[in-house]
Design a protein around this nucleic acid. Structure first.
Lengths: 109, 109
DNA sequence: GCATTATTTAAGTTGACACTTAATTAAGTA
DNA sequence: TACTTAATTAAGTGTCAACTTAAATAATGC
């Protein structure tokens, strides 16, 4: 799933779509009106986002409202934090500092 | 830059490479030994990662040591958190709850 | 200088994917 | 039923990126 999610956000227009639906649901055509590509192209992007678990659809008559699915970002968030994490980084630096002090005191012998 | 960074981590082998160099530097060939693709292919992936600011190179003789560049993940981290952020989410929910209460008291008039 | 090792650059191939237009599905309404 | 609106699916095209092998660069040792 994380593969699909990362693939999905790798496309700039899909990130734009995510920003558009971040604070409220929008229909496919409302989303499409923000872009200069065709409605089918938007529909295809929405499908990718949905299959990646990053958006959800709510059907109402002939309209389909797309909204963000926050949990879908959890795995990516964890991945990124495994590389860039405040607490882990500080722990590592503290360990290195400790190591350095050890070596210094050894050299003084 | 964030475009390049996201593009870079979208490729599964590049994520594998990042995991490999996460806890210490490795040479191009040491990295390549973990994969069944050619050395040039790895070199090309490393170039993409470097241009995205996710790894750094240290040259030593004929060898080149690749290591992770943690700051490179900062922008992606921020992007993801703009969609999935504990504190922001709670703020938004609190605001919505507040809004709901307002409407209720209006309806009672 | 020549050989060796480590790695990259060059050039070409292939498959995926982001589009397009045309056709189709689906729901509501006169 | 036929019409309209909203959106998707189908089919085809062009571009790009992930690979390949072969050639080139770069540093080191004899």
């Amino acid at each position: 799933m994380i593969d699909k999610a990362i693939q999905a956000i790798a496309e700039p227009r899909r990130r734009d779509i995510l920003h558009l639906v971040r604070d409220g649901e929008l229909t496919s055509s409302a989303i499409a009106s923000h872009f200069d590509i065709s409605a089918p192209a938007i529909s295809q992007h929405l499908k990718v986002l949905e299959e990646a678990g990053l958006v959800v659809v709510r059907r109402a008559g002939t309209k389909r409202f797309y909204g963000i699915r926050r949990e879908g970002f959890f795995e990516i968030k964890q991945l990124i934090e495994s590389f860039w994490d405040d607490s882990l980084l500080r722990l590592k630096e503290a360990a290195e500092e400790e190591e350095r002090r050890k070596h210094e005191s050894n050299q003084q012998k």
